[in-house]
Design a protein around this nucleic acid. Structure first.
Lengths: 210, 210
DNA sequence: AGAGTAAACGGACTGCAGTCCGTTTATATT
DNA sequence: AATATAAACGGACTGCAGTCCGTTTACTCT
C-alpha cells in the first residue's frame, strides 16, 4: 500500500524516501516539486480547506493520478507539506539547544516540549488537522512515533513511576491538534493556560525533585 | 444550522428534540424509526464502514434528502445510533450505583469512569469513531460536554489543585476512541494496562489521601 | 545509437457525502 | 369537509477523493 516513493518523516538522518537505492526519476522529481509548490501557493491564497486535488492538479499542470501516485491521499500530501517543519522540530528535540534539546533535566525538557507543541500549533495547526484526516492510523505515522518515543524517553529519564509508554500517549493526546483547536479557537482558552495545564500534568506524573 | 428536529444527547431528562413544543409529524416519526432500524440492520450485516447513505435510503424506503434533513450528516446519524447507549451511560454517572454513580469518593468515581469508558469502547467503539468524523467540533457536542463537566466536577470534588476544566480535557483525551483503537487493536496493548494507566494519571493529579 | 523495460503519467471514471428545490402531505383552522 | 400552510419528502444534482488502465517517457544495457 505505501508506495515506495511516498515521502515520510521519520528521524532526521533518514533518507527522504523509503526505498533505499531507487533513484527518483527526473520527471517525477520535477513534478513533486511542482505539486508541493503549487499546493503551498493555493493554500496561501485560499486556505487549507479550499485546496482540492483537482485544482491542485490543474495548477501544477499534472494529472490527478500523479498526485495520488506520489502522496497517496490528501492527508498524505498535507503530511508532506509539514515535512520540513517536522524535521526541524525533530532536530531541535535531538540536538537543539536546551531545554528543548539535550542538556537540560528531563522535567525541563518535557515542559519545553509542551510549550513548543502549542506554539507550533499556532503556525501549522490547520495543516496538522488536514494531515490528520481519516485518522485512526494517525498514531502509526513516523512523525508521531518519533515524538512518542521522545516523550516516553524523557518520562523514564525523569524517573516516572508509571507506564512511560502509555503515559506518553495520554499526555500527548492532550496536545492533539483537534483538542488544541477547540481550546484555543472555539473555547477561547489562552495559550498560557494550556501550557500551564501541560506543566501541571507533567509535574504530577514525575516524582517531585528533592 | 442545527435543524430543530436533529436528535441530540445532552442530559438525561432533556427531551429528545431540541425544539420545545413542536410536535414531530407522524410521517417524520415513522421515517425516523425506519431509518434508525434499517441502519442498525445494515451495520449488523456489513459493519459500520460499509454503511452508505444511499444504501440506507433504499433499505429504509425513503429519499436520501430525508435522512440528511433529520440527521444532518453521516456522523450525525451515528451519533443518533449511539444515543441510547449514551443516555444509559449518563444515567449511570448521575444516579447509578457507586462507584460510577454518586455515593463513592471522587477518586473512586474517576477510576470507575475510566474503566467504564474503556469497556464501553469494546462495545460501541466503531460507532464512536464514525460519529467522530470531521471532528473538530467533536468537543462541542452535548454528550462530550456532559462528560467533560462530569469529570471536571469530580476532579474539583477530589481536591485537585490544577485547572480542573483543562485537566478534564487532557485526561479525557487519553480515552479518545481513536487512541483506544490504536492502543487496543493496533498496538496490542491490553485493556487492563490502559485502565491502569488511567488510574495512575488520576491518582497523580489528585492529592494523595491522608 | 537503438531497443527494452520499469516507472511515471494523465484524465476519464467510480463511489459517496451532502445539497437543492419542486412536489407531497399532515395538521390546524374555519 | 374544505382550505391553508408549514413541514417533510425524494431523487436528481454537485463536488470531491480516490482508482484504473492505456499511453508516454526516462533511464539502462548492449
Amino acid at each position: 500500500m505505501p508506495h515506495p516513493l511516498i515521502p515520510v518523516v521519520s528521524r532526521p538522518g533518514d533518507e527522504y524516501f523509503v526505498a533505499g537505492d531507487v533513484r527518483e526519476r527526473t520527471d517525477a522529481s520535477r513534478n513533486r516539486l511542482l505539486i508541493l509548490r503549487s499546493a503551498q501557493e493555493l493554500i496561501a491564497e485560499r486556505g487549507v480547506s479550499c485546496l482540492t486535488m483537482d485544482a491542485l492538479a490543474e495548477k501544477a499542470g499534472v494529472g490527478k493520478g500523479t498526485i495520488f501516485r506520489r502522496f497517496g491521499s490528501r492527508s498524505g500530501l498535507m503530511t508532506a507539506l509539514l515535512d520540513h517543519s517536522e524535521r526541524d522540530f525533530q532536530q531541535c528535540l535531538l540536538s537543539g539547544p536546551p531545554p528543548l534539546g539535550p542538556g537540560a533535566p528531563a522535567l525541563e525538557r518535557l515542559l519545553a516540549y509542551g510549550r513548543a507543541i502549542v506554539e507550533r500549533f499556532e503556525l501549522t495547526g490547520e495543516l496538522q488537522q488536514a494531515a490528520d484526516a481519516q485518522g485512526w492510523r494517525l498514531f502509526a505515522v513516523p512523525a508521531r512515533l518519533f515524538q512518542h518515543q521522545h516523550v516516553a524517553m524523557l518520562l523514564r529519564a525523569g524517573g516516572c513511576r508509571g507506564d512511560a509508554e502509555l503515559l506518553a500517549h495520554t499526555l500527548m493526546a492532550g496536545l492533539e491538534p483537534r483538542l488544541l483547536h477547540y481550546q484555543l479557537k472555539d473555547a477561547n482558552i489562552t495559550t498560557e493556560r494550556v501550557v500551564e495545564n501541560w506543566n501541571f500534568m507533567v509535574r504530577a506524573v514525575l516524582p517531585t525533585p528533592p
